[in-house]
Amino acid sequence: MPFIVLTVIPVLFLMISTINNPLLSKIVIMNMVLSSLDVLSFYGILTKIPANAKIRNKETRSYWKF
């Protein structure tokens, strides 16, 4: 949901509206690029970790175990 609210909706708003603010456009595009890393991580978790595994986080590292 944050991806949609912070990325998709602002892009659609800028495409529909007549606002011509280069800084705002750059911020929205940068957010879209950086958010793609979260989407790719989520995809990796869905495809590489077995369905019955539990994901654990320890500081900045995440790991899974059965």
Rank of each mutant, 00 (worst) to 15 (best):
58 K>N: 01
60 T>W: 15
48 K>E: 07
18 T>Q: 07
16 I>Q: 07
4 I>S: 08
52 N>K: 10
51 A>N: 12
41 S>W: 15
54 K>D: 06
28 V>P: 02
59 E>H: 11
24 L>G: 02
15 M>D: 07
45 I>K: 00
20 N>P: 06
14 L>H: 01
56 R>Q: 11
2 P>K: 14
8 V>L: 11
39 V>I: 07
49 I>W: 02
35 S>D: 07
60 T>E: 09
57 N>T: 13
8 V>W: 14
44 G>M: 07
51 A>T: 14
11 V>K: 11
52 N>Q: 11
2 P>C: 04
24 L>P: 05
28 V>K: 04
42 F>S: 01
4 I>H: 08
40 L>I: 14
53 A>C: 05
50 P>D: 01
50 P>T: 02
41 S>Q: 13
26 K>S: 07
11 V>L: 15
65 K>G: 04
12 L>I: 14
34 L>C: 03
50 P>Q: 09
60 T>H: 10
5 V>Q: 13
9 I>D: 01
3 F>G: 00
66 F>S: 08
52 N>V: 07
63 Y>M: 01
15 M>T: 09
18 T>M: 09
47 T>S: 00
17 S>C: 07
60 T>R: 13
38 D>V: 13
13 F>S: 10
20 N>M: 13
9 I>A: 03
61 R>L: 14
26 K>C: 08
64 W>Q: 03
55 I>R: 01
44 G>E: 10
62 S>V: 14
4 I>A: 08
55 I>W: 04
63 Y>R: 05
23 L>I: 10
35 S>L: 07
27 I>M: 09
54 K>N: 10
34 L>R: 09
1 M>W: 12
62 S>A: 06
7 T>V: 14
26 K>T: 12
10 P>Y: 04
57 N>S: 06
52 N>Y: 05
41 S>T: 15
33 V>E: 03
28 V>Y: 10
48 K>V: 01
3 F>D: 05
5 V>R: 13
20 N>S: 15
55 I>H: 03
17 S>M: 03
11 V>E: 03
20 N>E: 15
19 I>D: 04
65 K>L: 10
